[in-house]
Design a protein around this nucleic acid. Structure first.
Lengths: 343, 343
DNA sequence: AATCTATTTTTACGCGCGAAAAATTTTTAT
DNA sequence: ATAAAAATTTTTCGCGCGTAAAAATAGATT
């Protein structure tokens, strides 16, 4: 590494003995130049430590190497974990990922998409807010920028969707719970933030009917993305009035279950599948904290890696295909049942 | 809003009847043009919906409006929450925040700083990994880019530090615990990830000495940022061998406490300040999940808002001051004791 | 109304790189 | 060895905006 500070590609071209346009090609895609030239460039690169100006590159290139990753609520470790995977995948593939969180608010989601647009991203991985999303805004965005939706589907918007097969989640939990004890009631928000919740309720109802049991859906009130607190308040209200209709509760998602478990603990209600427990609780998602709840939470787990890998590779294909698929692609991943102490 | 698509500032100048250099000034700082001109521009802006090309701007400006926010581990909702606050503050002040997480890994932290540098950011808010940080890399970065450190201090590096007064945290918890029951032992990692842990241990020892009690420090093994699991395993080992030396445990941080509580629950050990509890547990940070543990966690709370506000306003001053302070500024915030059920 | 000052306009150049076309070299195939 | 194909170099232009300097204009001052 010499001390020569290189100002631009012109200088680096002069010093390395390679023409500037060839260097430009190399930086755009190292594979696009002959192996021998590539070797010479990389050799020179070690000597001179030059890096192209990212703003000048992005200004002039029709397509940048930027990839936007947008999640609805980053304070949820579930999304943090998914985002981490996706970031890594983007980076490994030579893209520049940038992470955004809508923090549960429509105006932020809109702002993010707006500012993302001006970054001319090669592609975007977007987990919409869901119910709170401004569908028109998202649709317009997807029309302009190659976008793969994940986690929360919006019908016919975006070129592809990668998410979870909610029926697989619910059927496994319901099947297990009914087989090992009383059939569960279903614990959810009255106005859920995203469409997965609706699909899970429908799957619950279908499974219960199929198995010949009476379904019970408990809808609790609450707005926003503080699911734990909503679950807690909802459970407290139930425990202070009629109690749960069965001794087994299936929560729509783990964050609600975390709140519910804290309510049960406070009320002295023993939860678990062991002898002497008053209630069994199970849920869906395998939230990073599910193994640390008291008791640890039986849940249907996402395959975090598969979801993020698939979302990125779908986006990758989409970008290669010039931003359009002939038809919208939906990929759903099945759940893996994780048995812990709560049910 | 007309349908005319404007390609560049030149066109917008022609259509709005304002010269391009004046527009350039306006976009750099709206206050820098005469009020009447500003009004004309903003009026035209509503008609034509033009936005300057961000890459061209950043390429030519000496200083961009980019601000980097770097946290060590985004899957920790504590950092997610801090980052959310900071993002908002940046945005409100007309900057473009970009969020990065080192995910607990040195090479990622280095990569982030490296790629951040090429974004020519006006300033950076950096919470270093701590022990795992490559101090030389961070020092060099801070020499080039106006940087305010937060959460985790590194001596003499960066122009300023904003964090918490660990003594305030620990003195409050120790004082409360000793006043209301047995003096606590201190539960921490043998090789903590960041310097706050060391300061907390020292504060614990000082407080215990001052109050005339025998200190007990329990050091548990484990590497990485999965604190809950480390806390859990450490607690299980203790419970399976000698047990805790006192009936009161003070954890270095809430994430360890979450793991510890799950271990206690599994072992059937009743935790709380109520009658019939075998153990009291308290901690520090007021992690977003601390209110949902079983029992809910007594802890010393950060003032999230103050920390993020102060960090940003410090950075703001730093940027206005041209990137250098005459002397390094450290701002520490006191804790607020939050009494819940665990102690 | 004349003068002064702050602001805007005009003009011109530069930033660092992408991209296209034509000329040249190297590689591969025959 | 030679022709054809592929890769590279040269040349030239353009992107959208920042910025500097000089000229023109608006507003404020007396």
């Amino acid at each position: 590494m010499t001390e020569t500070k290189i100002r631009n590609m012109e200088e680096f071209a002069a010093l390395s003995g390679i023409s500037r346009p060839t260097l430009s090609k190399y930086f755009h895609d190292p594979e696009s130049v002959r192996a021998s030239t590539r070797a010479r460039i990389e050799q020179a690169l070690e000597v001179y430590d030059y890096r192209p100006n990212i703003f000048a590159m992005n200004q002039n290139r029709k397509l940048t190497k930027n990839v936007g990753i947008v999640v609805p609520y980053l304070a949820d470790p579930f999304f943090a974990e998914i985002a981490r995977n996706m970031e890594q995948r983007c980076f490994d593939a030579g893209f520049r990922p940038t992470l955004y969180s809508s923090h549960g608010q429509q105006h932020l989601e809109n702002d993010i998409l707006d500012s993302l647009r001006s970054l001319k991203p090669a592609g975007v991985l977007l987990a919409p807010l869901g119910r709170a999303s401004d569908k028109n805004v998202i649709e317009k965005f997807c029309a302009d920028v190659p976008t793969v939706l994940f986690d929360s589907n919006i019908e016919d918007i975006g070129e592809a969707f990668v998410g979870s097969d909610n029926f697989s989640f619910v059927s496994q939990t319901v099947e297990y719970l009914t087989r090992s004890g009383e059939p569960p009631c279903f614990f959810e928000m009255r106005t859920p933030a995203n469409p997965n919740a609706n699909k899970r309720r429908i799957a619950y109802l279908a499974m219960m009917e199929k198995l010949g049991f009476e379904p019970h859906v408990l809808k609790i009130d609450g707005e926003g993305w503080g699911f734990e607190e909503i679950g807690r308040q909802g459970a407290l209200r139930i425990l202070e009035t009629n109690g749960f209709p069965t001794n087994t509760v299936l929560c729509s998602n783990d964050r609600l279950a975390i709140g519910l478990l804290s309510a049960c603990y406070e009320k002295g209600l023993r939860v678990g599948r062991s002898e002497g427990s008053a209630l069994r609780v199970a849920s869906h998602d395998d939230h990073p904290f599910a193994r640390f709840t008291c008791p640890s939470l039986t849940t249907a787990a996402h395959d975090y890696n598969s979801v993020s890998n698939c979302a990125f590779s779908t986006l990758s294909k989409l970008m290669e295909a010039g931003g359009r698929f002939s038809s919208r692609v939906e990929t759903l991943f099945a759940a893996r049942l994780v048995l812990r102490a709560s049910a």
